[in-house]
């Protein structure tokens, strides 16, 4: 464990909690893409299948359980508890355009052709594109509440910190996980445009980030 990965995991946890609290306290999921949250729940489900078969550390196990629980709680709030505030009309991204290439690629590129490895690879590739429905929804509505942008900021920061973690691990222990690194770089690139808007617009203290 290094400080970059720990900061990344904390940033990821903060992002998930920010979103969950926003929905719970405002009792509304307006402006939130339920599809992205479904995809994130699928990412955690397919990645943490080893939760009960492999014990790495208390931290690892606890964080996996927390991420699974919070992501399912978020999906529950969106599609069940506050479903009448779910903006399905603007949450219109065709997720099959993401799932088909990700499934295909995880069958092409993986470390071993075993169910666990292919599902893990699927979860890595899926995580890179899971935010697309949310970013698409923001471009469609033309704006995002500032709390939603904070959520996106910490979510993008988490993977950017993981890249620093991979650089650090490469130089200190020769660790290099090509699938995770390539996918993580692609994922972070998707956020760059948003990061620019976030820094130039939201940090100036405007309540909503309206896209140009």
């Amino acid at each position: 464990m290094n400080v970059f990965r720990l900061a990344g995991d904390v940033s990821h946890l903060v992002a998930i909690i920010i979103l969950l609290l926003k929905i719970w306290r405002s009792r509304s999921c307006a402006g939130i893409s339920g599809k992205s949250q479904l995809l994130f729940a699928l990412v955690f489900t397919t990645r943490y299948l080893d939760l009960f078969t492999v014990y790495i550390s208390a931290y690892n196990t606890i964080m996996k359980v927390v991420f699974l629980a919070l992501s399912y709680a978020t999906v529950y709030l969106i599609y069940m508890r506050f479903r009448n505030t779910y903006d399905s009309e603007n949450d219109s991204f065709r997720v099959e355009f993401l799932l088909v290439p990700v499934i295909g690629l995880s069958f092409l590129e993986h470390y071993a052709f075993t169910p666990m490895e292919v599902l893990w690879t699927f979860s890595i590739f899926l995580e890179a594109v899971a935010i697309m429905p949310q970013l698409f929804m923001i471009t469609k509505t033309g704006e995002a509440e500032s709390i939603t942008t904070h959520y996106l900021f910490f979510l993008g920061l988490y993977r950017a910190l993981y890249i620093a973690n991979w650089v650090w691990r490469y130089h200190t222990e020769g660790f290099f996980d090509q699938i995770a690194v390539v996918s993580g770089v692609v994922q972070t690139i998707f956020y760059c445009d948003f990061f620019y808007l976030y820094v130039t617009k939201v940090v100036q203290g405007r309540s909503k980030m309206s896209l140009p």
Partner: peptide, 10 residues
Amino acid sequence: RLHSKPKDEL
């Protein structure tokens, strides 16, 4: 080929 590795990362 790429070798698998213990998945200690979240």
